[in-house]
Design a protein around this nucleic acid. Structure first.
Length: 384
DNA sequence: AAGAGTAGCAACCGCTGTATG
DNA sequence: TCATACAGCGGTTGCTACTCT
């Protein structure tokens, strides 16, 4: 026998909550915790379905949520995470303390989506909208998508772990003790590659003053311009990064002015894709899935994510290249000033919807800011 | 001033995976 | 083992306020 029915919907109130209902729910939960949502409405004297109470509490009444205008950093975070995770609002919300998935979803749909659209970026794919010159970009877009898929899968896996951690701390308010989930900073993995730099290129952003893209810190000992990023006037998003994933396919390939060789991934860390059984070399072109990602993430004895030794040469090479390429590709899509005559989507816009007025430098600074935050925004977050 | 159109957002709906009896 | 409730999630709806004509 299963459980008794949740709640018959006859006679239950729907629609906007009144202040009185809010107070009843708030008072009850403060005194007793929510316990069983099913039983809560009658105990609290509410003519509502338990599900409605839970939604009202989690999205509005909970004391640990922040309401009101989103900060610039929060906007940036949402855009970045949406590029990686898509419409996985709960996963995105896990990286935005005090914001609910519903609020983020609404904000995306009513603000950010429109802004990206105005900038000529497809908000669903975070790629430039198709234009007459799009053919030459297809391969690059595919590579970027491929890498984004990996990052997405990894973020999702970690977001899942965050959720699982939260379950452990689901003691009802207000007796809930302070609790922090284990460190799940995938971006610190990125940073690990940046900070093990042997040949740091000094820059505050992704764009040099002459308009070329650049990683925050270059991690390899290649000669200058190892990843030349052609800037053309072929339209929005015409800048493309050399897809470094190819170097794995072709065991040795000229990349820019540096020559890369096939890298071996350490046994303890296999994040890039399926590894062949012989030498743990990455085989690209495989569609990644959660199972692969789960297998790729190693847990230590305490079920915390075990990050690879950043000193490992193979790890550094694999990850720094992947991340650099991903970031450059991502940056290239976002970076076009949109002022060239062939830009199909008109002038560029800043995120506050104002036209950048053709000020390339301002726009560059703005996107530098966003892209820098990919690496740095998590430093103060309890999640990270 | 008034009606139409639009934006913002709280809340609902329905689906899915998990827990429970 | 199975049926069912629960909880979480993402998509969608509908109400309210605001703007435009």
């Amino acid at each position: 026998m299963g459980r008794s029915p949740c709640c018959d919907k006859v006679g239950l109130k729907k629609g906007t909550w009144t202040a009185e209902e809010d107070q009843k729910l708030l008072t009850y939960i403060e005194r007793h915790g929510h316990g069983s949502w099913r039983a809560l409405p009658s105990k609290a004297g509410l003519q509502r379905c338990g599900k409605s109470c839970r939604l009202r509490w989690t999205n509005y009444l909970r004391p640990d949520i922040k309401r009101g205008k989103f900060s610039l950093q929060e906007e940036q975070t949402i855009i970045q995470l949406h590029a990686l995770l898509g419409n996985r609002w709960s996963a995105i919300a896990a990286h935005l303390p005090k914001r609910t998935d519903n609020e983020i979803k609404n904000y995306w749909n009513t603000h950010l989506k429109k802004r990206l659209t105005k900038m000529g970026i497809d908000p669903a794919t975070h790629k430039p909208k198709t234009n007459a010159f799009g053919c030459s970009q297809q391969k690059d877009a595919a590579n970027l998508s491929h890498m984004a898929q990996w990052e997405s899968a990894r973020l999702e896996a970690e977001a899942r772990l965050v959720r699982e951690s939260k379950l452990l701390s689901s003691i009802p308010y207000p007796t809930k003790p302070s609790f922090q989930p284990p460190c799940l900073d995938i971006l610190k993995v990125w940073q690990a590659t940046w900070t093990t730099t042997k040949n740091v290129t000094s820059t505050n952003g992704f764009f040099t003053s002459n308009g070329n893209l650049q990683s925050p810190n270059s991690t390899l000992n290649f000669s200058d311009n190892m990843f030349p990023v052609p800037r053309t006037n072929a339209g929005f998003g015409a800048n493309v990064a050399i897809p470094v994933m190819e170097y794995v396919e072709n065991s040795k390939q000229q990349v820019g002015s540096g020559t890369m060789t096939k890298q071996t991934v350490p046994n303890s860390w296999k994040p890039l894709g399926k590894l062949n059984q012989h030498d743990h070399q990455v085989e690209v072109g495989e569609r990644m899935d959660m199972e692969v990602m789960d297998n790729a993430i190693q847990l230590d004895d305490n079920d915390n994510i075990e990050y690879p030794n950043p000193d490992d040469a193979g790890y550094i090479a694999e990850n720094s290249l992947r991340h650099q390429s991903f970031m450059e590709g991502f940056a290239s899509i976002l970076s076009d000033d949109g002022n060239n005559s062939t830009s199909p989507n008109g002038p560029c816009y800043n995120l506050d919807n104002s036209s950048c007025g053709g000020d390339l430098e301002d726009n560059r600074k703005y996107w530098n800011n966003i892209l820098d935050n990919v690496v740095t925004f998590t430093s103060g977050s309890p999640i990270f």
